Amino acid sequence: MITEFYIYLALGALAGGFINGLSGTGTALFALGFYLVVLDPIQAVAVVAFMSVLVGLQGLWVVRVEIKSQPTRLLRFLIPGLVGIPIGLALLERINEGTLRIAVAALLILYGCYFGFRATLPAFSRRTPVIDSVVGLIGGILGGAAAVSGAIPAMWVSIRPWTKAETRAVLQPFNVVILSTTICLLFWKGAYDATALLALAITIPIGLIAAQIGITVFKRLTDNAFRRLLILLTLMMGVGIMISEVF
């Protein structure tokens, strides 16, 4: 069992770190399945959230120029997202988390299938500050209610005709800040016990190296290829969430 503990944590760190370095999101989707084999759900979420933030900081450095050049664009998503987190937590008392996650998964699958296999991608080019804020708010609400904060923002930014760096300059810091808030809440609940700390000691170095590999691949992608990758990633996110809830 001890050997399995190390193997599953290492595999999760490799998968989650690489996809975060590549796209700026999706760490939980690729890592959580491995972590849940050897950790209880609270510990697994605590570890993947911490690793997501840590490896995400590397991604932030890659697009630091784009973040500085468009701060208001990021804040349109981020501030409503932070407002949405406590709303999502409050909704947990009134809605079924599993049902909500299945509904989000179905939306991601439909979206990914429709846009992911089209010959040409949409290009929603006009400025949409109100929609951006609503998307950020929904992301925060879903993060608090069902731990899927990046799903709707990823859908929205993937159809904007921004460069890959501009897209990442919104998606990556949004996820880092939302997940940092999640870490604080989990710490308050005592999720970072001795087992979680041991898991972090194993996953952090592996995740950081894997993220660097993902960032290297990201730099080689064209803007259009990155948009298509992000759309297909939303499809995979939807399938992953659906499988985790149904089975």
Rank of each mutant, 00 (worst) to 15 (best):
G238E: 10
L208F: 11
F77C: 07
T3I: 15
V37S: 02
F218V: 07
I19V: 15
L92H: 00
I178F: 04
T203A: 15
M242P: 05
G238T: 11
L32V: 13
V63Y: 02
L89D: 05
L107W: 04
V55W: 00
S158R: 02
R118G: 15
A15M: 11
I159K: 04
V38R: 04
W162D: 09
L108E: 11
Q70D: 15
V83T: 13
N224P: 01
T182Q: 05
V65H: 14
F115S: 02
A210G: 08
L229A: 06
F218I: 07
V130N: 02
G33D: 06
Q70I: 01
R220A: 13
P205M: 10
I42T: 13
R73K: 12
F34Q: 09
L91F: 10
I19L: 07
R101W: 05
I95R: 01
A199R: 03
L230E: 06
A49V: 06
P153A: 10
F77P: 01
V65D: 14
G238M: 08
I79S: 07
T163F: 06
V239D: 02
G81D: 08
E93K: 12
V246C: 13
L14R: 00
D223N: 15
L142R: 00
F30Q: 02
A211S: 15
I109K: 03
L198E: 13
V130E: 06
F18V: 03
I19T: 09
E93N: 11
D40F: 02
E97K: 14
L91N: 02
L75H: 05
R220H: 14
L32C: 09
M155P: 04
R94P: 00
